[in-house]
Design a protein around this nucleic acid. Sequence first.
DNA 1: TACAGAAACTTACCTTTGTAAAAGCGCCGT
DNA 2: ACGGCGCTTTTACAAAGGTAAGTTTCTGTA
Lengths: 254, 254
Amino acid sequence: MATALIKKLEGFVHLSAEERDALTKAASERVRRIRAREDIIREGDSPRDVNLVLEGWACRYKTLEDGRRQIIAFFIPGDMCDLDISMLHEMDHSIGALTALTFAEISRSTIDRLMATYPRIHQALAWQALVSAAVQREWTVNIGQRNATERLAHLFCELFLRLRAVGRTHGDICEMPVTQTELAEATGLTPVHVNRTLQDLRASGLIVLKGRELRIPDLAELQRVSLFHPNYLHLDHEGAQFDANGGEIKPVVE
Amino acid sequence: MATALIKKLEGFVHLSAEERDALTKAASERVRRIRAREDIIREGDSPRDVNLVLEGWACRYKTLEDGRRQIIAFFIPGDMCDLDISMLHEMDHSIGALTALTFAEISRSTIDRLMATYPRIHQALAWQALVSAAVQREWTVNIGQRNATERLAHLFCELFLRLRAVGRTHGDICEMPVTQTELAEATGLTPVHVNRTLQDLRASGLIVLKGRELRIPDLAELQRVSLFHPNYLHLDHEGAQFDANGGEIKPVVE
DNA sequence: TACAGAAACTTACCTTTGTAAAAGCGCCGT
DNA sequence: ACGGCGCTTTTACAAAGGTAAGTTTCTGTA
C-alpha cells in the first residue's frame, strides 16, 4: 500500500479518491522485498525505475575507495528515490536497505502518465523533490557546522517530524531501526563517538533510545539544543498546519 | 551575455541558433549588479525569479542563530539558482554574492515559456538541476568523510572542472575569488585550519594559490589525493567527452 | 534453552581540528 | 605617499573527536 506516500502528499495538496487510487495502483504494479543490507541499486548502474519505499527504511550512500561510507539520506515509508534520475547515464551513488524492505518499482512511463493525467499529483511530487533537496542542504549544514550532540539531536528531530508526516509516530515515540554505526555514517562521526554522544543525550533526558524505538520527551527542547528549525521540511502547506516549532496544531483529517 | 550557461548546456545537448538566441534574450531581460557580500535573496523571503549568474561568484548559505554559517553551494557564471523553488512558500536559505556580481533575473513565466517552446532547453535545464543535486550530495560526503586536506583539494578539483565546463580556465589555471574564511565556511573547517591546510597543499606542490588565482600543476594527482571522481558532475554526455579522470579528450567545438 | 553473530558499550590513548590573540601584508581611496 | 581595512599568516594552547582493542548485552534461530 502507498498509504504513507498518500498521507505525505496530502500534507501539500488534497487528493481526490481517483488520484489516491491511481497512486495506489502505480505502487502495486511491481512490489519487491529485500533483506537488510541488500542494495536496490549501486553506483555505476544505470538508473531505471523510480523506487517507492512501502515498508522499512533504506538509505542513499556513497563509498570512497578506502571503504569510508557516507549515508547521504534516509528513506522512510512514503519516500521516493529520485523521481527523474533516469535522465542520467549512470548512478553516482547507491541505495541500500537498512532494514527488511518492501518497495514498489514504478516505471518511468507510469510516473509520466500519472503526472500528465493528474496535475495535482505532478505538483505534489515536484514539491516532494524540492523538499528532498532542502533536506540534503540541511544535512550539509548539520555535518559542517554542528557538533556531535547537535548533529544527532538534529537528525532525531528531522526523522521524528518526517515520520509523523506519514503517520508513523505514536505520541512522542517513533521507530528508529538504525544501528549506531549507521548513525555514525550519516553524521560523519565514528561509532565510538556516536555511542558517547547518545549516552550524553540519554543522561540529559533529551532522548529515550532503546532497541529500535526512540522517545522524545520534550521535542521543543531537543529542537532548541540542536538548533533545529523545521522550516526546511516545508510542512506548512494547506493540508496540514504546524506551528513554528513543528508542533502539530491541526492534524490532517481530509 | 549568457555564454557560460549556453556553453555548459551544450555539454549536454546541442542547441540551435534559435535556442541560443532565446536563452540569451531571456538572460538579458533584467540584468542586475550587486556588490560583494550583498544578498540576492534571504532565508524567509518568498522566492520569485530564477537567478542566473552572468559574471562573478555567488553562494547559497544558511546561518544558525549563533552566527555559524555554512556555505552550501558555490555559484559560478552559468549557474542558475533553483529553477523551480518558486513552488515553495519561503526560502529556507539565502543566496549572496561572494564577489561583485552580475546576474539575470528571469521570471518564472519566461522560464516556463522557454521550456515549453524548446524541449531541448527543458531537457538541458532539468539535467542541470540533477547535476546540482549530485553536487550537493558530494558536498555531504566531502564534509562528512574527508579530512581537511582532502576536503579542500576535492573542492578545488570540483571548481576547476566546473569552471572548465563554462570556458573559464586557461590551461591549468582558474580564478578562485574566495577568501580563506569562505573556504572554511564551505568545508566546515575554521579559517585557521584552512590556512594551515593550504600551506600544506602549497608545500607539497599540489596547488599554486595566490591572490584570486589557482593553478593546479597536476590535476590527476590532486584528484588522487582528494579521492575525487568526476562522475558526479555528469560531464560525460554527447556534447563534450571526458575521460575517467575528468581530463578533456575532445573539446566542445559545436 | 543454548548458541552465534550483531550491536552496544568501554577504556586508554592519540590526532586533528578549534580558540584566542596578534602580527604582517596588500590593496584601495584620498 | 599615507592610512586604513580586510585578508592572510602565525603561535600557543585547548578540546573535540578518532583509533584500537576489547567486553558485555541483545536478538534471532536451531
